Simulated scan of single mutants.
Amino acid sequence: MQIQNVGFILILRTFESLNFVKMHIHHIETRPSILNHFIAQVRDCSVQTDRMRFRRNLERIAEILGYEMSKYLEYREQTVTTPLGEKKVPMLARDMVICSILRAGLPFHNGLLNYFDHAENAFISAYRHHTGTKDEFEILVEYLSAPSLENKTLLLADPMLATGQSFVSVYESLKKLGTPAEVHILAVIGARPGIALLEKHFPPETHLWIAAIDDTLNDKGYIVPGLGDAGDLAYGNKLQH
């Protein structure tokens, strides 16, 4: 009987690993903290008109997400020499690359870099190109500056996760730079349809670190209630393509 039970457990675990390995979603605002104040401010029409404050709040949210994410990374003990002796300290074990999507991703990138100052940096452009008279659009990626991603920890950052198409297009463009050992996606606000799209296109065991999740998108593919256009709020209005 004991052997049969062990065999059944092994079969069950194998079946689970083949069929039910999905993205790990870390929805941080569900446990109230000071993070909720920053989220409220980036959403609030009466506050978000202050561009400097808006950028700083994106930066602070990124810092909190980065700290929460750091609890799940791999560490190795290293010996540090102090003026009075030596001490073994757990230090991050793998090289890291922070890749931000321009332009709203810049203050978000700075927040992550405040905590992971040893990380390499990558920048990529992705924008909506409207293909007709309606609200249909495609994501165009036109600029990429990045180091090798081979066997590194990739942090893919953008404040807004709306349809999810930008994240998917960017990840496809990054594949030519090597295979990361692990992938972490970070966002301030996301919509459930966009998260569902990421689950279909990103590798199993990808982690999503997100401050807030809204249920729907409007006809133009913007998050409702969301916060508006993060890039415009951070840096000013842009001419449309």
Rank of each mutant, 00 (worst) to 15 (best):
I189Q: 05
T30C: 12
G228R: 03
Q2K: 11
H118A: 11
M96H: 08
Q165A: 13
L112G: 01
F202D: 00
A122I: 02
D215T: 14
F54S: 02
K134R: 13
L154G: 00
F108E: 01
A196I: 06
S169H: 09
M52L: 10
A162K: 00
P204E: 12
L154A: 05
I223N: 03
S148G: 03
E63I: 10
Q4E: 13
V47C: 11
L239A: 14
L106E: 12
I11L: 10
A234K: 03
I139N: 00
Y72K: 12
C99V: 15
T216R: 12
K220A: 15
Q165T: 08
R128I: 11
K220S: 13
H129S: 14
K87L: 15
L102E: 05
S70Q: 03
L161E: 02
A126Q: 05
V188F: 09
A157H: 02
S33H: 06
V97R: 04
L233C: 02
E59P: 00
A162H: 01
L156F: 04
Q2Y: 11
T206A: 04
L140V: 15
N121E: 15
K22Y: 10
Q2W: 08
C99H: 08
R128M: 11
A212Q: 15
S148Q: 04
H37C: 09
L149E: 01
P204A: 14
E172P: 01
N218Q: 08
K200I: 09
H24E: 12
M23N: 01
K238Q: 12
M96Q: 10
N121M: 14
V224D: 04
A234W: 03
L186D: 00
I9P: 00
G226S: 03
N110G: 08
L102I: 13
I124Q: 05
A126K: 04
A126M: 07
H37I: 13
V89C: 02
F8M: 10
P159C: 10
S46M: 06
L154N: 01
V89L: 12
L73V: 10
V168W: 01
H109A: 11
L197F: 09
Q78W: 07
I25Q: 04
P180L: 06
F167I: 04
N237G: 12
L92G: 02
I139H: 03
K200A: 14
I11Y: 08
A196W: 04
I34V: 11
F137L: 06
I189F: 08
L186G: 00
H201L: 05
N110Q: 14
G85N: 09
C45V: 11
I98L: 14
L197P: 05
E77T: 08
K134Q: 15
L198K: 02
I210N: 04
R43V: 07
N121P: 00
L106K: 08
L197E: 12
S169E: 15
K200D: 13
V47R: 10
